[in-house]
Structures are given as C-alpha cells and as structure tokens.
Amino acid sequence: MPRSDPARSLPAWYFSEYAPVGIDLGSRAAVAAYDRNQGTDPLADDALLDRLGVTDGTRLIDLACGTGSLTVQAARRGAVAHGVDVSAEMLAFAKARADRFDVAPQWHHAGFLDYTHQGPLADVVTTKSALHQLPDFWKQQALVNAAEMLRAGGFFYLWDVIFSFEASSAETHLRDWIAAAGRPDGEGFTRTDFETHVREEFSTYAWIVEGMLRRAGFDIVSRAFPRPTHAEFCCRRR
C-alpha cells in the first residue's frame, strides 16, 4: 500500500490529513465497527457504479475509500480500481475484503491533498462521507487535485454531510438530525458521534460546495438533497 509520494516534504503550514478529526479510527476494532455502522451495502455500491457507467476496464479512483466496499465492487466488475485512504487500518480492512472476493485493487496510503496519481487519467473519481474532514480552504485544494487526476469528460461523484438548510434554521435542523440519527451504542453511530461531527468536523453549506466544484473545473450534472443535512453531486470534468 504505497504512499503517493513518501519523499515529499510538506510545508509546516500544510493541513495534516493523517490526524483526522471526529471519530477515532485508529484500531482494527474501531474500523470494523465503522463498517457495520456505515451500513455497507454491495447492492447500493453496484447501483452507484451503474449510474457512473463503471464497467470492465473503467479507470476508477475512490478517494478516502474507507473500508473499501465501493472500490472492491468496482474491481469485481473489471474496473481498474484504486482505493486511497489516510488510515492504514482502513486499508488493511479494505484489502481483506478484496481478498475475500479474489480481486486486487491498487491501495494507496495517501489523502485528498497528497495523493499523486500515476498512470492514465481516471474515468471516474468518487468520494463518499469524507470531504467534511477538511476545512473549506483545503476542500477546495482537494477538489482541484481530484480534477487533475480525472480525464476531460470524466465523472466526479461526491456524497457527504452537506447542509442545504438556511443558516437561520441551522440549530433546529441539526438538533432534529442528531436526535433522529443517533442510535444506542453497538447499534450504529450514536448521538455523541453526531454531536462530535457537528462540533469538530467541517461539514459546510451546499452553496459553498457548488462554488468549489465549479472553481475546481467541474460542471454539475445533477444534485440531490435527500435530507437537509446530506447532499449528492454528480459532476463532469470540463
């Protein structure tokens, strides 16, 4: 699981992706619990891959791939799949998942900001439930980096905790979300997990993300806001 550029020296002011905020995922048990809580669903992964036109030979990069479900499903249908994550424990879990299905995606111990793709540009770049780990300045840099690894006309897919409510109603929406989404310990992400997300992580407004996507070189093909706290963007590289 190579780092993208292990010899690269980053300036002292550079954001540290390797000390992620929010939920601690530094142990094997924590990663296994995360996978359960996230509700990993290969059928949902396949439905998304169908929407993005991922077939045999498609070059796909999954940024912040986590436990590797989407990356593995892409490899199972013959895609040239790359999974990128800052967590060595996540990548170990993902590799074990790939081994169970006898596929071999390429795994990279790297982040949104320092991953440097080698080889042909990707046809599809995806990221789910992870961009909120970066403050807005660094989100923009991450999106620029994602665009640079994607061919013209290729697809970029983003799903995350992104807010579509008005700022004036933020407290009401966040309180309702935390109350509805929190589960008892051992049955999913807890109320404390969601409180930590809001307090310590960097989810932002949809109108900010839309501007970032356009400035990074993407045209927004579709957007969806299934809940006031979540959003999906499917974009095409200009």
Results as ranks from 00 to 15, higher is better:
L213S: 07
F202T: 11
C235Y: 07
G78L: 11
L10M: 13
V125H: 01
V209P: 01
V31R: 03
T196W: 05
V54W: 01
L91M: 03
R77V: 00
P42S: 00
Q133Y: 10
T192G: 10
M90H: 11
D136I: 06
A180N: 11
E201L: 06
R59N: 01
D193I: 04
A130W: 06
L25M: 07
W13I: 07
Q133H: 15
E166V: 01
F155R: 15
G119I: 04
D56C: 13
Y157C: 10
A180W: 12
L63F: 03
G111V: 06
A81D: 05
A170Y: 14
I220V: 09
A32K: 08
D41M: 04
R215Q: 15
V21S: 14
A142Q: 12
L213P: 01
S164R: 06
F233N: 08
G39T: 03
F225A: 05
C65W: 06
D185I: 12
F225P: 03
A167T: 01
P2K: 15
A98F: 07
V103L: 03
Q106S: 12
A170M: 04
G68A: 07
W13G: 05
F202N: 15
A81T: 07
D46L: 08
V209S: 08
R97K: 15
L70F: 04
W13T: 12
F137Q: 10
S168L: 06
R77Y: 02
G153H: 10
A19N: 13
G83H: 09
A7H: 13
V86K: 06
N145S: 15
A29M: 07
A142I: 00
G22I: 03
Q118P: 11
Q73I: 05
D62P: 09
F165A: 05
K128F: 07
G111A: 09
A224Y: 05
T40H: 15
A47M: 03
W207I: 09
A180T: 13
R183H: 14
L174N: 04
A224K: 13
A180M: 05
S4I: 03
G78C: 13
T67N: 00
F156K: 11
Y157T: 04
F202Q: 13
K128G: 08
F225D: 08
P120N: 12
W159I: 01
D35R: 10
R77K: 11
Y14Q: 13
K139T: 07
G186L: 00
Q73T: 02
E195Y: 14
R151E: 08
D160R: 10
T40S: 15
I220G: 01
E232A: 10
K95I: 00
L113S: 06
G39M: 00
F155K: 14
Y205P: 00
S4A: 15
P135S: 07
R51H: 08
K95C: 08
I178C: 08
V221H: 10
A94T: 07
T126K: 02
S169K: 10
R237A: 04
P2W: 12
P135E: 01
R59L: 03
E89T: 13
A29R: 14
